[in-house]
């Protein structure tokens, strides 16, 4: 897909760059690091009797970061699996309104989840939850999950608007 930056309002490419560069880049780096970590852990343990200390808890923290960095990206490209067998039965205009409502409903659900993870962030700070071996605090990862859920909710609201008022070009 090519984007003609000159005709689009400034906010869209800015948001897109933010999404693609930061979250996409972060997800890519983390996934690659997960792969290398497992490899080094296995090689170290098998051949040198020295596994990576706390390797599996680092993997856990990276997994959560990876998933939630990917979530806004998937939502921005309508990458969630949905079933559209009945779509042919519905007139175009009705279908557009329905699509917008679905996006808003998903945004609301994501918003609720973001609110709940904000609570969870507070809990992990309050309890001082840490990982077992390296004693890494868990709250920053939960805070990151919260932030990406907020971003996802916003993206879904924007998508609802785009579906309802497609710009003629």
């Amino acid at each position: 897909m090519t984007t003609d930056r000159s005709v689009q309002p400034a906010v869209r490419p800015a948001a897109k760059i933010w999404l693609n560069r930061i979250l996409g880049g972060l997800a890519a780096v983390i996934l690659f690091a997960m792969m290398v970590l497992t490899f080094v852990d296995v090689i170290g343990r098998y051949f040198f009797n020295t596994p990576v200390e706390g390797g599996f808890e680092i993997t856990e923290l990276m997994l959560a970061t990876l998933i939630f960095a990917g979530l806004p990206l998937v939502s921005a490209t309508d990458g969630h699996i949905a079933v559209d067998i009945f779509e042919i039965l519905i007139p175009n205009a009705v279908s557009r309104i329905k699509e917008a409502l679905i996006n808003l409903a998903c945004a609301a659900m994501t918003g609720v989840l973001a609110w709940q993870l904000a609570i969870k962030t507070g809990e992990t700070v309050g309890y001082g939850d840490v990982t077992a071996i390296l004693h890494i605090p868990i709250w920053p990862v939960v805070a990151f999950m919260t932030a990406t859920l907020v971003a996802t909710a916003l993206i879904l609201v924007i998508r609802a608007g785009v579906v309802l008022f497609p710009r003629n070009r």
């Binding site: 792969m35 856990e60 709940q116 993870l117 969870k120 990862v141 939960v142």
Partner: peptide, 26 residues
């Protein structure tokens, strides 16, 4: 129920064995 969805989201994200999913896809 709110606490339930919060807990499911949190612990599924931080689930060691599930790291198998992205790595096999990769």
């Amino acid at each position: 129920s709110l606490a339930m969805v919060r807990n499911v989201t949190y612990e599924t994200g931080l689930h060691y064995t599930l790291s198998i999913v992205p790595l096999f896809i990769l």
